[in-house]
Design a protein around this nucleic acid. Structure first.
Length: 107
DNA sequence: GTGATGACGGAAA
DNA sequence: CTTTCCGCCATCA
């Protein structure tokens, strides 16, 4: 969003196909491992490529709790929709930000 | 092969 | 507090 200038079309699944020893498969696995009521940041899922996490979640067809992945500051990329889901699981949300101090999972 | 993007992070101003 | 810039990986034109 910061450097969002011209946008090209495209962006497809990086490699959501399992069996391919890539970060994508690991990312999906970690996201699936997030228990209800807790969240993780993109940086926690993959410290080396937080942007890749977003891409995978955006393009994957796998059923993963993507709503449990928020930004490092607790804000939700998907906005209200995502916050609503989190709240439903009992995640404390304040002013559009998730309370990472209590819901962030250890790395 | 180069260059640019993105459901981001962190440091700097 | 906000805004700007650079870097990370994988993919697309």
């Amino acid at each position: 969003m910061r450097a969002g200038k011209l946008r090209r079309a495209g962006v497809r699944a990086p490699c959501d196909a399992p069996g391919r020893g890539t970060r994508a498969s690991g990312i999906l696995a970690r996201v699936r491992a997030i228990p209800p009521g807790f969240v993780r940041t993109y940086g926690d899922v993959d410290q080396k490529a937080p942007r890749l996490v977003g891409r995978v979640l955006a393009t994957t067809t796998e059923r993963v709790p993507w709503h449990r992945v928020v930004r490092a500051d607790g804000s939700a990329p998907m906005g209200d929709e995502q916050l609503a889901r989190l709240r439903r699981e009992g995640v404390p949300v304040r002013g559009g930000r998730v309370d990472l101090a209590r819901t962030r999972l250890p790395t």
